[in-house]
Every structure is written in structure tokens, then in C-alpha cells.
């Protein structure tokens, strides 16, 4: 993309200064502060000892005595296993979720068949199902009616690098996929609607079957959208608490994802250790941040395509 750069000279810069300009900039600084200060405070608190937290203002960093890396170390050790759980949960779930959603959206927008509208409505309804309403039947289903976790336990035990208890994640993965598909499908659908129909028509005339058109034409073109939906859905699943709590139940369960552990970290009979809490929060957020950084360009492209 090319832009035209205005010629830079100090004279015009000074000329530009006016009351409105100053007010605008002050407003900008205030908003930046509003958003960044809590983050900074959290980060800084993670590096403080408990005494330092009590002594100083939240956003002031502590050097010398008050500075410590112990909190981070401690939080990391506590969370280590659950990180693995969270990733084992979120990565496969997101991948399958996004793939299935893209296929569904393809079928709904680029292929003509009877009853499409009905299915579309079902998807839309799916978005609005409140999680809270279904946790009881959900637990019942996975624990009693179809105890897939138990059934797969021995298989998981046999797989190297995985442990038996990891099979407890399977119901959660399936649930997250199921509840994530509607919104992801709608996201893909709006993207596919913006693609020219003539692409699919040309492929049909070239002799490609519906499946081949998806595989060879639509899927490769969807890359920017995959980036967006993947980041969005990964964040949703990774941060998800309610279903995890319903199905995995306890923070000390071996298969517990990170979201279950965080509330319990740093709490003790002597009160709450904010340093540990903040460390846990920051560490927990790292995977999603890294993911965003890795896919940032795709994300931006995808958003641009959406609105373009």
C-alpha cells in the first residue's frame, strides 16, 4: 500500500498548534493512560514482594528490596502442568472448530441447496444459547450418558507424552468446538459472501467438484480469515471458565486448565498475595499474546477484508 507522505517542516508543525490541537492530544494521553496503567500496574506488582505491595502505590515499580522474581517463579511452577492442559485443550479445539466452521460457511454461502435458510437460522440460534442454561445437562451427558473420558483413558495412557488424565479434556474439547462453531461460521459466512461468485462458477466450469472447489480454491483464499477466526476462537476457548469448571470441576484435578487454577493461586489463610496473583495472570495471558503477535499481520489483513 502506498501512502503520500506530507513534507515535514517545523514551521507547519508550530503553525498547527492551537487550543483544539492541545486539547486533542491531552485527551489522547489520558485515554492511553487509562488503558495502559492497569497493565503496567499488574506487571509491576508481579515483580514486588508482598511487603512492597503494601508499602507502595500499585503502578510504582519497586527496586532494590521490593523487587523479586520469586512470584513469577512460584506462579510458573504452579501453573506449569495446567499450561499443558490448556494448550492441549485449546489448540486442537480451535483448529477443528475453525475448519468445521469454514466448511459450514462454504456450504451455506457458495453452494445452492434446499433448506439452507433453515440451517442458517439454526446456526444463528446456536450463537445465543446461554452457557449457564446447559451446564447441568452437559455434566450429566459427559459423566453419565456418554463417559468418553473414561472410555478413552486407557488409550491416552498408551500415547507417549500424554497421561491418562488428559482424556478428561476430551469432553471439554468437544463441547468447546460445538459451542464455538456457530459464531465462527457466521464470521466465515460474511467473508465468503464478499468473495465474487464468479470464482466458484469458474471452478465449476473447470470441472471441479464441490469438495474440490473448497479444498483448492476457497480454503487457500481464506487464509486471512483463518487468522482472524483462529485468534478469536483460541482466545475464547483458552479463557473459557464455565464449561471447564463444570466438566473438570476442581482446580486440583490433574487435567485442570489454567483458567481453573488462577482463582485459587496466591490465596492463603494469611490473605491474598497480590504479587503471585499478578504473576499468574501475566503468565496465563502469554500464550494468547504470543499468538496474536505471530498472526498480527494476518489478523489485520483479515479485518481489512471483512470491512472492505
Amino acid at each position: 500500500m502506498s501512502q503520500s507522505r506530507p513534507t515535514f517542516d517545523t514551521a507547519s508543525l508550530v503553525e498547527d498548534v492551537s487550543l483544539t490541537r492541545i486539547a486533542q492530544y491531552i485527551l489522547v494521553v489520558v485515554f492511553i493512560g487509562f488503558f495502559l496503567v492497569p497493565l503496567e500496574a499488574g506487571f509491576v506488582t508481579a515483580l514486588k514482594t508482598n511487603e512492597a505491595v503494601a508499602r507502595s502505590l500499585p503502578f510504582v515499580p519497586s527496586l532494590g528490596d521490593g523487587f523479586t522474581l520469586e512470584n513469577l517463579e512460584f506462579a510458573f511452577n504452579q501453573l506449569r502442568d495446567s499450561f499443558v492442559n490448556s494448550l492441549l485443550l485449546a489448540l486442537p479445539a480451535t483448529i477443528v472448530n475453525v475448519l468445521l466452521a469454514s466448511m459450514a460457511a462454504y456450504g451455506l454461502t457458495m453452494v445452492n441447496w434446499r433448506g439452507q435458510l433453515g440451517f442458517l437460522i439454526l446456526f444463528l440460534i446456536g450463537i445465543f444459547v446461554p452457557y449457564q442454561a446447559v451446564i447441568v445437562p452437559l455434566a450429566d451427558f459427559w459423566n453419565n450418558i456418554f463417559p468418553i473420558a473414561e472410555m478413552l483413558a486407557p488409550t491416552f495412557a498408551a500415547i507417549p507424552l500424554l497421561a491418562e488424565y488428559h482424556s478428561d479434556l476430551v469432553p471439554l474439547i468437544i463441547t468447546d468446538i460445538a459451542y464455538g462453531i456457530p459464531i465462527c461460521t457466521i464470521l466465515f459466512r460474511s467473508y465468503y459472501n464478499s468473495l465474487p461468485e464468479s470464482l466458484v462458477e469458474a471452478a465449476k466450469i473447470d470441472g471441479a467438484s464441490i469438495a474440490k472447489i473448497y479444498r483448492r480454491i476457497i480454503l487457500p483464499i481464506s487464509k486471512p480469515m483463518f487468522g482472524v477466526v483462529f485468534i478469536y476462537q483460541f482466545t475464547q476457548i483458552y479463557n473459557e471458565f464455565l464449561f471447564a469448571f463444570t466438566l473438570i470441576v476442581a482446580a486440583d484435578a490433574p487435567a485442570a486448565p489454567v483458567t481453573l487454577l488462577i482463582p485459587s493461586l496466591g490465596a492463603s489463610t494469611s490473605g491474598i498475595n497480590y504479587g503471585i496473583r499478578m504473576s499468574a495472570a501475566i503468565l496465563a495471558a502469554l500464550p494468547t499474546i504470543l499468538l496474536y503477535v505471530a498472526f498480527a499481520e494476518q489478523f489485520a489483513k483479515g479485518l481489512r477484508t471483512e470491512s472492505g
Binding site: 465474487p196 464468479s198 470464482l199 462458477e201 469458474a202 471452478a203 480454491i217 487457500p220 483464499i221 487464509k223
Partner: peptide, 9 residues
Amino acid sequence: FQDYALYPH
């Protein structure tokens, strides 16, 4: 096609 409909990727 009028817009050529070339496969962009």
C-alpha cells in the same frame, strides 16, 4: 467472465 475470475492464490 467479465471480471476474469482468476484464482488469486
